[in-house]
Simulated scan of single mutants.
Amino acid sequence: MPLPDDFVPPKLPDVPATPKDAATVMLVRDAAAHGGGHGIEVFLQRRVAGMAFAGGMTVFPGGGLDQRDMDSTASAVAWYGPDASAWAAWFGCETSLARGLVCAAVRETFEESGVLLAGDADGAIVADSTPYHDAREALISRDLSLAAFLDDAGLVLRADLLRPWASWVTPAEEPRRYDARFFLAALPEGQRADDATSETESSAWHRPADALAEADAGQRPMMPPTRVTLAELAEYDTVASALAARREIPRIEPTIVRDSEGVRVEFSLPRGE
């Protein structure tokens, strides 16, 4: 996959940076339920151009783990759905890290889009996240941990609303590297995703194929993992079919190739992708 001139990383350093664990969430909804006709839509954000990592790129909500996503308090988070050991098996990591990744996925989705993947003790999924606006701001400023927020609000983390999707590692040439696990989640009924985050300049729902067409036309810069994931999502007609997909989740680590043809990124996808 060719790289644009303004996104060519430096040559491989003597000692590559250690990737930081991260969680990325593709929020999807059925287009027909929102006046958009056939297929699914995915929530995309364009990052502020001046950001140190992926500035100006189109991305899904997500970010790095906060250490508190993995601390002893996080292990006591009220939790509904597949337990940490199941996520560890899917992502091929330690159970403690898997728990932290799920917590980070829920936290980052709330911080960056206002969508809260949680419910009450009776099993009802949150249908309006606006009453938790102050908590969202405190999470963003790191004045509040996800565990403390959920406990104070009497909420349960809904791991059953997430699906494991992929695992991508930033190339070794990059000074900032992430070991990002990709999750899929349907927009909970009644909730809305917003653009109330300082990290992005715009946010909106897009059909995957439309976003890819804009990328091909040079109108929507995006990194290879985003392009690949959008192409995968474009194969599904409904949110239900995407959520039901059974996927292999190998750790994909692209490499940067420089030769007479220019600079490009190469990687291998699991069979059938």
Score class of each variant (00 low, 15 high):
2 P>D: 15
4 P>A: 11
5 D>A: 14
7 F>C: 07
9 P>E: 07
10 P>L: 09
11 K>G: 06
12 L>E: 05
13 P>S: 06
21 D>M: 03
24 T>L: 11
29 R>N: 03
32 A>V: 10
34 H>K: 07
38 H>N: 05
39 G>D: 09
50 G>C: 08
51 M>Y: 06
53 F>N: 02
56 G>I: 00
60 F>N: 00
63 G>F: 05
66 D>L: 15
69 D>K: 04
76 A>K: 15
85 S>T: 11
94 E>V: 03
94 E>Y: 04
99 R>K: 07
100 G>C: 12
107 R>L: 06
109 T>D: 03
111 E>D: 06
112 E>P: 03
115 V>Q: 00
121 A>S: 15
123 G>E: 11
123 G>K: 10
124 A>R: 14
124 A>S: 12
126 V>Y: 02
128 D>W: 06
129 S>L: 09
134 D>K: 12
135 A>P: 07
139 L>S: 00
142 R>P: 11
143 D>M: 08
146 L>S: 00
149 F>P: 01
151 D>L: 12
151 D>Q: 12
152 D>F: 08
154 G>Y: 07
161 L>C: 10
165 W>G: 00
166 A>W: 13
177 R>L: 04
178 Y>T: 00
180 A>D: 02
180 A>N: 00
181 R>H: 09
181 R>A: 01
182 F>P: 01
190 G>N: 07
191 Q>F: 05
193 A>W: 04
195 D>N: 13
195 D>R: 14
201 E>Y: 09
207 R>W: 10
208 P>L: 04
215 A>P: 10
215 A>C: 11
224 P>F: 15
224 P>H: 14
225 P>G: 13
226 T>F: 06
237 D>E: 15
241 S>V: 13
241 S>F: 12
248 E>G: 02
251 R>W: 13
251 R>P: 10
252 I>Y: 03
254 P>I: 08
260 S>E: 15
262 G>S: 12
263 V>H: 01
265 V>A: 12
269 L>G: 07
273 E>C: 04
